[in-house]
Amino acid sequence: MILHTLNAAPSSPAFNDCLKIARTHDALVLMGDGVYAAIDSAEAYSALLSCGAKLYMLLTDAKVAGISAPGANITAIDMDDLVALTEEFPRQQAWY
């Protein structure tokens, strides 16, 4: 079980690398430019869904980006929730 934090736009190598590694039982948090992958029905969102990880996004970053209608499988979280996730997952990989 790995906690992935994805802070890179969907066309970046970091985004692609992350999706190659993340899988079921992992958690994946979109933050910074990563939140653009949350846009519902967009190609990047489909790619996210297919990796199998549980999906989250930082609500503050999504608001900044103007993501008003994220995909239904994404849970919006705040900083406290992110800290809770880091406690739950001993291993974390930052993709940026």
Partner: peptide, 17 residues
Amino acid sequence: STGEIHQLMTEFDHILG
């Protein structure tokens, strides 16, 4: 291989990226 990378990562106590 790509498929082995996740397994490798879980064999360590900490990951630094």
